[in-house]
Nucleic acid binder design. Structure first.
Lengths: 216, 216
DNA sequence: AATACGGGAATTGTCTAACAAGTACACAAG
DNA sequence: CTTGTGTACTTGTTAGACAATTCCCGTATT
């Protein structure tokens, strides 16, 4: 694998920057991002900004109708449920495979350990290790395309997080405990129970999230 | 839902045309598609052709490295296995859901009926109904994102087909019989057996396909 | 003879400038 | 209050140009 250098393309650099600004909350959902504004902000030509925006529209982070300025996607509770439903399908399969081999990914264990140490930290800080935990499970499928699809889903998952901002939907301890129980079931080879535990874990998170989105 | 008119964008029209030409075999895997060539062929500006090519690269139909001309993606046997592995995850979940509700999609039944009537037709003719059969299963999940992901996968599945051209990998009758058995298991509520039948169905197709790709 | 090293051709990446086409909003008229 | 119109703004597309990179091939060297 070649070393990942910083910038290979101006467009990619803008995409990367915009993604970071969206995830950080600087660009809140609903914020309009016109081509000329982006071009002026990064001091590039409009076609370059246009290409970057189209990239983000394709990945779902931005939404745009023809001849209308793009906006940071405003997710509905229905979207949130759909996203979690989709990720559950992939992750459940990964968990079944892991359990059948009684193989607990080290990366998942590490990520969850990190969550436990952040018990009294800001809710935003557990987003990253939580995502790494779930990504580590999917990684076990060793499928290039499944991982790519999940990475795309991860973008939308992070976008969900920006909608709730700093509201605490679930306690950090509960999350870590459910993760630990999931890993325990995997190590015991309980494929069906592990898959069910995962689905319930995502189901509760999805419900809390959808509930919060409806209250806006 | 607003009525879908023909063309809303020149870029989309070119993308649509190129997709059709790739699937039809006119543009075989490995065929180079330069920006200037495409621009000249459709009598549009190079940036327009560029945008269309980038769209197809994003969907996996074309492959391109920086500063190199795009080519119709040449799939390896490893790719084929990965594609079928990924679709199996999604379709298996759909089949489990359908079986739990003992609900056989009418569209799937119709598509398979069409396959049986095409018993002695060209292998190319069964691609369409076969894809419709499997898409009908996924449709049952009623997940916008899962369907979108599956549609993207369908592009790569069709690309697989163009690699084998007119080679007969499986008999039409066998395919129809396996489909019929799958629907039967769904109607009986045998979720686990139905999911397993589907996975085996895809597994055999995947093996035949990968075997054929390695022989090139 | 095989390999390493330039040099040139071809292709893509990006920019500037401009015009065309579409949408949304405000405002006026019925 | 609804309908129609017009203007401002944004995007869609085109044209031409230059820079940067890659690939290929011929040459020179070992």
């Amino acid at each position: 694998m070649a070393a990942r250098l910083g910038v290979v393309s101006v467009v990619q650099a803008i995409v990367k920057s915009l993604r970071a600004r969206i995830f950080s909350g600087e660009l809140a959902p609903g914020t309009p991002l016109g081509e000329v504004d982006v071009a002026a902000h990064y001091e590039v030509a409009r076609p370059t900004a246009k290409a970057a925006l189209e990239n983000l529209v394709a990945s779902g982070l931005l939404t745009r109708n023809a001849h209308q300025t793009a906006r940071v996607t405003l997710l509905s509770s229905r979207d949130a449920r759909d996203i979690y439903r989709t990720r559950a399908i992939i992750e459940a399969e990964a968990v079944r495979l892991l359990a059948s081999k009684r193989q607990v990914p080290a990366a998942a264990r590490d990520a969850n350990a990190e969550i436990t140490t952040l018990a009294d930290a800001s809710p935003i800080d557990i987003i990253d290790p939580d995502i790494r935990f779930h990504a580590a499970l999917v990684q076990a499928l060793e499928s290039q395309r499944t991982s790519a699809i999940y990475a795309q889903l991860t973008d939308e998952i992070r976008l969900c997080m920006t909608h709730v901002q700093d509201a605490t939907l679930l306690s950090t301890q509960d999350i870590a405990a459910e993760h630990a129980r999931l890993l325990q079931l995997i190590s015991e080879g309980e494929a069906a129970k592990a898959a069910k535990a995962l689905e319930e874990h995502l189901q509760t998170a999805s419900s809390k999230l959808a509930e919060h989105l409806e209250s806006l």
